[in-house]
Write a protein that binds this DNA or RNA. Structure first.
Lengths: 203, 203
DNA sequence: GGTTAACTTGGCCAAGTGGACAGTGCGGTT
DNA sequence: AACCGCACTGTCCACTTGGCCAAGTTAACC
């Protein structure tokens, strides 16, 4: 709104709009995580984004539209991390260790987790929110399934269960642990992690 | 508020208060599950409970107080079901089967699940909500731990993992599956259930 | 220079929202 | 019968909220 304008003579006006839009989206996602979906107000979003409250209704069709876009973008972005971990991993154990480490390294305080939960909750009411989220989760499970298959072939984990079933179990397990740690931050996951590793290994 | 009064001459005034109070609490819990914590209004609660909206402020100290009480009571009540399943069960497998059956039997549409999620989310902001919930969850894990220990002694499940770690894993797994089915109602749990049973059995 | 279109800004409004409160009715007590 | 106190009941109020809009600003285009 000040220094970045008029330098190269490029797209001051048009690009400024995109920047404002992005700032509003980011602020909205942060507020959903902070306050909960229903407590977010357009004025609070504007304040957090550092724009006047009229700007919100200029760039978006309404509060619902804005919250939907912000939640979906933020959640997909948050899920991209674990997904890339799963893609890069060579074994199921690596995924488990990676994500468990992420949990104990302060992911609890990460607003991504809160946003994920809020979006999940909202997705039961709004199909427009649920659809992209469910698609991403299926993608995650598919990646995990392929990983399980490879790990089974290599003998890393027990081969007597279906890869898809095992992948769903692992994904649910990780999310469930996230939920439990959120409710009870003092919960120690080390024993549980050992148990999971041991069980997957097939004793 | 009409026919029930003045019949036997018993508890008209005092008991009527308790009934109204209970109706408000129940309506509040239902609305939290339906609309989400932040979207609930005292007027909507009063309408659902069939009382004038002034009654809400008469019986409770304020909206926060009411929502807290309603959410805690409703959630503890919802958790009592699974807990009694776990108490009555003779083995870990029984708990798994019982709760998985409960999932596929329409627990997804059960407002209890929605209320549980809303309360869990709120508990990250309000310690007064988190405390009783965390206590109940610890109780659930403790019951499960004892069950795991007994199942291990009997040889029903692999005995090479700590009972506490296994119990936490099972609890998280169930909650995680609940979350995934909520997001993707078409998700088939049968393969996953087989996988879990197989893994727990120690192959 | 003038025009246009995208963007910004702050004021405004109707529709709630939570809470307060002055009454009202009625059972129980004396 | 007179009284008391509890459980309401409906109204009122200060305030917030989402959304609209009429100006203002800026940069690109003719």
């Amino acid at each position: 709104m000040d220094s970045a304008v008029g330098q190269g003579g490029r797209p001051s006006s048009a690009a400024q709009g995109a920047a404002t839009r992005a700032a509003i989206l980011e602020a909205a996602a942060a507020l959903i995580a902070d306050l909960g979906w229903g407590q977010v107000t357009t004025r609070a979003i504007a304040a957090r984004a550092g724009v006047p409250h009229g700007a919100v209704n200029y760039h978006f069709q309404g509060k619902d539209d804005l919250l939907r876009q912000a939640a979906i973008a933020g959640t997909l972005n948050a899920l991209a991390g674990p997904l890339s971990i799963a893609r890069a991993a060579g074994s199921v154990q690596e995924v488990l260790d990676g994500i468990l480490a992420w949990f104990t390294c302060g992911a609890l305080n990460d607003p991504s987790v809160a946003l994920l939960l809020e979006t999940a909750r909202q997705s039961t009411r709004d199909p427009l929110v649920r659809e992209p989220l469910a698609t991403k989760l299926r993608e995650f499970r598919a990646t995990l399934t392929e990983l399980v298959r490879r790990s089974q072939e290599r003998g890393d984990i027990a081969a007597d269960s279906s890869p898809a079933g095992t992948a769903t179990m692992v994904a649910a397990l990780l999310d469930g642990l996230m939920l439990h740690v959120l409710l009870d931050p003092e919960l120690d996951l080390s024993e549980t992690a050992d148990t999971i590793r041991s069980l997957l290994r097939g004793r």
